[in-house]
Write a protein that binds this DNA or RNA. Sequence first.
DNA 1: GCCCAGGTGGGTA
DNA 2: TACCCACATGGG
Length: 221
Amino acid sequence: MTQEERAQEILTILRRTFSLPDWETTPKKPFATLIRTVLSQATNDKNRDKAFKSLSEKFHITPTVLSEADVKAIEEAIRIGGLYRNKSRVIKELSRAIVEKFNGTLDFIYSTSLEEARNLLMALSGIGPKTADVVLLFSANKPVLPVDTHVNRVSKRLELAASKADYERVRLTLQSLYSPNDYLAVHILLIMLGRKYCKARHPLHASCPVNMLCPSAKLGD
DNA sequence: GCCCAGGTGGGTA
DNA sequence: TACCCACATGGG
């Protein structure tokens, strides 16, 4: 079996095992996606959702409003998410930069190339590759596969990516194994697999549905 | 009461 | 380049 075929088998099994969540509720507007993603950095989903909801109730989620908001008020709103002093500054600063550099809109991501849009986003303080890639995939459907900690760990355990590959290597390897049409599903499904069956610092779960495709991926990391 | 969730930026050798 | 650490909350 080629690596491509094995990757496809893994995706088939994941689609059978998990159902993809309903995307009606996720924000599609790029700035809201950006703020949500910043709030999700190093934070679990529940706290992220509470923080985003709280922030949304106090402010319109727009660059103009948040660039003019009081940092303390942003802190208060997102405290429940953790890392709130850093993130409140990041949110205000990002908003200000978007107003100044991009006329208050992230719409350039629709009209520029993936690389250009990615570089422009990553030039902003607080946006690293993961956050940029999430915005580009989720809001602009760009052909990019974000590598979060689960995607990184799982793809290495399943030997889809080399064990020492850095962010870019993992991303490009996964992108080469899958069709751009599947990037979103692969991203979501690898995260779901990681949370349930392939946790950090634990051996691969005995009932992990892709075990038969991963003969040597037994050890925790 | 400890361990886990988990991205970015800044610092050190 | 390759690692280490700060950031901070809520849930198991």
